[in-house]
Amino acid sequence: MTKTRTHKHKKHTGQIPGTLVYTGEKSDKEFYVECFDYTKETIEESILIDIEDAVNYKETDSVTWINVEGLNYTKEIEHIGNQYGLHPLVLEDIVNTTQRPKIDEYDNYLFVVLKMLYYDKEEKIVIEQVSMVLGKNYVLTFQESEGDVFGTIRDRLRHANGRIRGLKSDYLLYALIDAVVDKYFSIIETLGNKIEDLETELFAGHSREGINIEVQQLKREILKVRRAIFPLREIINRIEKGEHPLIYKRTITYYRDIYDHLIQVSENIDIYREMIWSLMDMYMTTISNKMNEVMKVLTIIATIFIPLTFIAGIYGMNFDNIPELHYKYSYYILWGIMLMLFLGMLYYFKKKKWL
């Protein structure tokens, strides 16, 4: 049965620019909005039942993080976007889960799209799009589904760990991006362990059934991770070298640290990518060596039986005047000659190390 592939970009064909069309998988999850509003001394954590309440945090002196889960609720997202003055094309990119990681700069906010990676219960890589909007005193994040890598950020906000509650919203954006990048390291480490395990197995000469499928799956995973991570370097580079008024000079150093981490992750990805290609070559070499071993054994067997078959063919002919035909010990002599030929050839093959 042939599997039909769906193309998510077709959903945008003929649409007016700025039209919100969710391109991800439909979910039964309810629309969920959590809010952290904090200063250095205080913090308020709440779940926003009424999305109208989100606009109350736009012009406060405190810093606010509003996290939205459920990109299939396009009307609610459009309403929040209108409250915060987001451009229609920004809202379109938020619900377009195939959007390439990027950064757009506007007069009073920054819009960042990146990919959040983690493993699910079946040990498969999940790539989820996260959109972030940085304003003067707020950060909006939009996720496709529940579950993320921001648990440590929530704990730091609740317990005032580190400097996160003492700095502005640009530092909060840094902390959120840094949490995503830190998760990249664990993803890369797991992929590296899988590749090394397969490499060890193939070096040992093992080629169990299905190992080629595992190599191909790892190859696809590496390519998916590479496509998700590499564009983020450009984003951080633009933040680091840009002069947007929402990014203060004191936080540029922290963004530079993210860039260094991304360089390290990228180098590891390139290394593992080369290792994957080497694994494929190694697998083909292992299969070829096994085939050669089989062909060598069959060739030796055929070579041994060629002279024996020749002798049997000569004395199997129905001529009356074969000299040895009526000799009393001909049968035993013939067996002796054939046995000597067999043993002699085995000795010769052993001496040549063909066996």
Rank of each mutant, 00 (worst) to 15 (best):
G313A: 10
T6E: 02
N321F: 08
L325S: 03
G85W: 09
R5L: 08
W277P: 00
L110R: 02
F36G: 12
P245I: 08
S131T: 10
L20M: 13
D178M: 06
K75V: 10
D182H: 09
S145E: 10
S27P: 04
N161W: 15
D155S: 09
R208K: 07
D197C: 00
L223F: 01
G344I: 01
Y315A: 04
L262W: 04
T309E: 05
Q15F: 00
D28K: 13
L218I: 06
L134W: 04
G336P: 06
W277I: 02
V180C: 10
H244A: 11
L117C: 10
I51L: 13
I263E: 03
G135Y: 02
E30H: 12
L218F: 00
V130T: 05
Y331N: 08
I306P: 07
E267Q: 06
K26E: 14
E214D: 05
D320S: 11
I77T: 11
K350N: 15
S207K: 14
E324I: 09
M1C: 05
V95W: 05
T286C: 12
N137P: 07
I229F: 09
S169W: 06
R226T: 11
G166Q: 15
Q216S: 03
I94P: 14
H7L: 07
M132D: 06
V55L: 07
N96A: 08
E189G: 05
E221S: 01
L198I: 10
P17N: 05
L262M: 08
E25C: 06
Y184H: 15
Y57T: 12
Y109W: 00
Q99F: 09
E76Y: 03
E201D: 12
V21S: 05
K249A: 15
E76C: 02
I43E: 04
T74S: 06
L20V: 08
K219D: 00
D61V: 06
Y329F: 08
I337A: 10
S145Q: 07
M282Y: 01
I188L: 11
L232F: 13
Y174H: 12
N212Y: 01
V63D: 06
Y331E: 13
R250F: 07
R250Q: 15
R226D: 03
F203I: 15
V55I: 15
E240C: 07
K350R: 15
R220Y: 04
N56I: 14
A204G: 08
I271C: 03
R250W: 03
W65M: 11
Y315V: 07
V139I: 12
Y332C: 00
K58M: 14
P88C: 03
P245F: 09
R220M: 06
H12R: 13
E128W: 02
V63F: 09
R163E: 12
G18Q: 05
D260C: 01
I47T: 15
I125A: 04
D104S: 14
L325K: 13
G344V: 02
I287L: 15
L223Y: 00
E196M: 00
G70Q: 02
E274D: 14
L89H: 08
M291S: 13
G162D: 11
M282V: 09
W65N: 11
K121W: 02
G81W: 11
L48Y: 08
L191W: 08
V139S: 06
F150S: 04
I239C: 05
K352C: 07
N237V: 00
I287N: 14
D50G: 11
L232C: 07
Y184S: 07
E52S: 11
G151A: 13
Q216F: 06
I125R: 05
